[in-house]
Nucleic acid binder design. Structure first.
Lengths: 137, 137
DNA sequence: TTACGACCTGGAGTCAGCTCAAGGTCAAGG
DNA sequence: CCTTGACCTTGAGCTGACTCCAGGTCGTAA
């Protein structure tokens, strides 16, 4: 059973333009066509799209997702490669979390000072004075 | 005391192109020129640039920083506006933190499964099966 | 037959935040 | 006088992930 681009757009929530875009950049390799040249998506395509959507929700970029899809396509257990990618992504996210956490704390501090009354504006002054530290980057 | 664009680039770590860019988009309003037309940065410019850099490290976009700078420029305590901006940013960051945390947990789970031996690849399969949840977004 | 809606293509535009390239000017040093 | 190096301007290019547009085609229905 195959579906038109419109039907797939409905099912996935991805606009037709995005579906064509995914195909163009090779995430979806050549989708089958009907005699009139319109795209017909089969179950494998749908499954691939679902995969893309889930991986994207886990903060993988389209480039990384392409790598994962290649692993998925290759026969045999891809295991270690996928692990490597995931470990890298986890490390990245841990770093982001740490940075974000620290910044959040600093900003919260500034805001609390600000609410504490007194003169001036600790937020503005904080950025002027430099008591806000730089990230590890 | 004023400095050339090269000197300011040294002091701030921002490349000359970026300094000219900041001026172009109005973060730095017209920088003074010498008789030959070259930019001369004064202490106020430097302080402004430091402000920009610190706010940027706190995840404010250049657009938001422009708002903060306008507040800073206006006489009188800007307080409540800066508070509002900061509260919004804090809320945004809290949301990002929550999302990132959840994703990190899910990915870690997948990776642990993966290291546990057995058949197949839980990472790949996780994205296929859909046990990874969607963000609140 | 004609209209309509869904689809097709290629290519351009969007956002942020730079970054670079080409071609011109200017001041100081040898 | 000539070269070098820092600077100037305008305008284009980059990344990622779309998003939109114009103009053309296809299939079905009235």
């Amino acid at each position: 059973m195959t579906r038109s681009i419109g039907a797939i757009a409905q099912q996935t929530g991805l606009p037709p333009d995005t579906l064509r875009y995914y195909e163009k950049i090779g995430l979806l390799r050549k989708v089958a066509r009907d005699p009139g040249g319109r795209r017909r998506y089969d179950d494998a395509d749908l499954s691939r799209l679902r995969f893309i959507q889930r991986a994207q929700r886990c903060n993988f970029s389209l480039g990384e997702i392409r790598e994962l899809l290649e692993l998925r396509d290759r026969p045999g257990p891809p295991r270690s490669e996928a692990q490597r990618l995931t470990e890298r992504k986890l490390a990245e996210m841990a770093q982001q979390l740490a940075d974000l956490n620290r910044l959040h704390g600093e900003l919260q501090l500034l805001l609390n000072l600000c609410r504490g009354g007194e003169e001036g504006c600790p937020i503005i002054e904080g950025f002027e004075a430099g008591d806000v530290e730089r990230p590890a980057r």
